[in-house]
Design a binder for these strands. Structure first.
Lengths: 121, 121
DNA sequence: TAGTTTAAACGAAAACTTTAGTTTATGTTT
DNA sequence: AAACATAAACTAAAGTTTTCGTTTAAACTA
C-alpha cells in the first residue's frame, strides 16, 4: 500500500467520514480558508492513481468513494509505527500506553470485559 | 513538536539506536546504496534546526545525539494517529488491535499481570 | 606557522508535493 | 442541434524535501 501525503490524507478523512462525495461536497466540509476547486479535484485524481478511491458517474460529474478503508489504512500506519518504534511488538506498544498513564488499567480491563461479553453473546 | 520528514526520521532512528554518532558512523550503519556524506550531514543539520538533535565537538568534527527521545516522538506520533483514526480514544485503539486479532486476549492479560506484578514490588 | 586534511556550512539542482489556471469533454437547456 | 454550464483533465507554477557539489573553517602535521 502506498503512503499518503498530508493533503491526500486530509481528503481521505473526509471521504471516510462521508462515505462518498463529489468535489463540491468535499469542499463544503472543509474549513476556511477553502482551497480552490481544482486543488481538491487534483488531489482526488492522485488518490485515484494510488488506488485509494474510485468513482461512479452521476450527471456530469463523478462521485468518489474510498477503495481503502479507514481501518485498513490505520492498520497499515500502526503497523509501521509498531515496527519502527516497538520492535514489532504490539504488546510492547500497549504496555507503553499504560506505562505512560495514557491508558488506565481499568480501561484495559474494560476492553477485556467487552471482548468476553461479545464472546458469550 | 515539529514533525519529521521521511529522511529525517530515518536518521533519527539511527541516532536513537546508537545513542550518539558522527556522520561517518551514521553512514556505516546505513544499508547500500549509501547516500553521499553531504546528504547525511545536511539532514543532521536540519534536525539541529528542528531541535531534535544537538552535538558535542570532538577533534575536528561533531558528535550528534538526540534531544528528543524515541519515546517522546512515538508518543507524539501515536497521539496524532489516535486523534485522526480513533476519535481520540486510546481505548478504541487498543480494542481495534484486539478485534483485528493482531493482539490476543492473553497478550492483554499478560500486560495486566506485568503491571500488577510491578505494583506489588 | 604554512600546508594539508577533514568535516561542517553553504548553495543550488533534482525530485516530489501542493496549488490553481486553462483547456477539453460532456451533460443540460433552449 | 447550438449555445451554455459544469466538472474533469491537463499543465504548469510555487513550495518543500532530498540530494550532493563547492566553499569555508578548523584541527592536525611537518
Amino acid at each position: 500500500m502506498k503512503t499518503l501525503t498530508k493533503a491526500e490524507e486530509e481528503i481521505m478523512q473526509y471521504l471516510w467520514k462521508l462515505g462518498e462525495a463529489n468535489v463540491a461536497t468535499l469542499m463544503e466540509e472543509m474549513p476556511e480558508p477553502k482551497p480552490a476547486y481544482n486543488t481538491v479535484s487534483t488531489i482526488v485524481r492522485i488518490l485515484q492513481d494510488k488506488d485509494f478511491v474510485n468513482y461512479r458517474k452521476q450527471g456530469r460529474g463523478h462521485i468518489y468513494f474510498p477503495l481503502v478503508s479507514k481501518e485498513a489504512y490505520s492498520k497499515f500506519t500502526l503497523s509501521k509505527l509498531k515496527d519502527n518504534y516497538f520492535e514489532g511488538s504490539l504488546k510492547n506498544m500497549v504496555s507503553f500506553f499504560v506505562n505512560k498513564n495514557q491508558l488506565s488499567i481499568s480501561d484495559l480491563e474494560e476492553v477485556l470485559n467487552e471482548i468476553n461479553k461479545n464472546k458469550k453473546a
